[in-house]
């Protein structure tokens, strides 16, 4: 007997409605002259915009690098058995997750007002040298400090959850083989933790790309601020925001694709499992042939 599947009329209706809505939106964007598409096109490859884009990419990469390294260190401090290390790490996390990034950025920018001279040395002891905060804490350093330190706090939680996801038996097995502690971490624990760490880190990276726009408040010339500088002169606010958005979208698309491949790489032990399971195991060579003594 022929089988007639259930007709999903509701699906068709909703699909049609949404298509209509989307088409309307698209035509309005194309036909509305106030979107100023020629202006968008003119500024898309403007040298000021491209410089801002380069700065955004550099800031994202540098701040994320600081965040990942710092986050790993803080995560290791938090799981360490040394209570002082643990407390310091928790305090850092508490302060940097508990205050807005915008506040932190402005704070670093104004650090020289708080400490005109920064001295490295021991409390009440000898000094190792000092430097002038105004010269060294530039906009650039303030932006990197703000973004990197904030990211480190979030990354430490991601790294910690990754480390915790590795079953304790893995550490025991490695230790039982006589592997020293650092090698257990780098060869056994971290590679397995990566599978848990990578996806949220990809999200953080994409988030960071857009968060760098916050440093426009301390007059750092990244992508958004470059666009702002242009539209404060020519008043083409919307077209220039569209220019910036297009570049943000391009970058996030590239990052998403990269993330996909990275996840595939670190999940390879799973993937092969599925492939072998589907293909059937070649059991015939296995069955303990040399052990015929039993």
């Amino acid at each position: 007997m022929p089988v007639v599947p259930l007709r999903h009329r509701g699906r068709w209706i909703f699909a049609a409605l949404l298509t209509l809505l989307f088409a309307g939106l698209l035509t309005s964007m194309v036909t509305n002259p106030r979107f100023q598409w020629p202006v968008v096109y003119r500024y898309l490859f403007d040298s000021a915009i491209l410089d801002g884009l380069a700065m955004t990419i550099w800031l994202t990469v540098a701040a994320m690098a600081i965040g990942v390294v710092l986050g790993t260190v803080v995560a290791l401090m938090r799981i360490s058995k040394n209570p002082v290390l643990g407390a310091v790490a928790s305090g850092y996390l508490w302060a940097f997750r508990g205050t807005p990034l915008l506040v932190q950025l402005i704070f670093w920018y104004n650090l020289s007002a708080l400490y005109p001279k920064i001295t490295l040395g021991f409390p009440f002891g000898p000094s190792l040298g000092s430097f002038d905060a105004n010269t060294y804490i530039t906009v650039y350093v303030a932006a990197l400090l703000g973004l990197g330190l904030n990211e480190g706090a979030y990354m430490s939680e991601i790294v910690r959850s990754g480390l915790n996801s590795v079953p304790p038996g893995q550490r025991e097995a490695a230790e039982a083989l006589g592997m020293p502690g650092h090698r257990v971490m780098t060869r056994i624990i971290l590679p397995q933790a990566m599978r848990v760490i990578i996806p949220p880190t990809g999200n953080q990276l994409i988030g960071m790309l857009k968060t760098t726009s916050l440093v426009s408040v301390i007059a750092m010339q990244e992508l958004l601020y470059s666009a702002q500088l242009i539209y404060t002169v020519n008043f083409q606010t919307i077209p220039l925001l569209i220019v910036a958005s297009i570049w943000y979208l391009v970058l996030t698309t590239v990052l998403s694709i990269g993330q996909h491949f990275l996840e595939r790489h670190f999940g390879k032990s799973d993937r092969r499992a599925n492939a072998a399971g589907a293909g059937g195991e070649d059991e015939e060579k296995d069955e303990l042939a040399p052990m015929g003594n039993s």
Partner: peptide, 12 residues
Amino acid sequence: GLTAKADAYPRT
């Protein structure tokens, strides 16, 4: 008795 599995991953 597992020479054939040298390059397999444990999960398989």
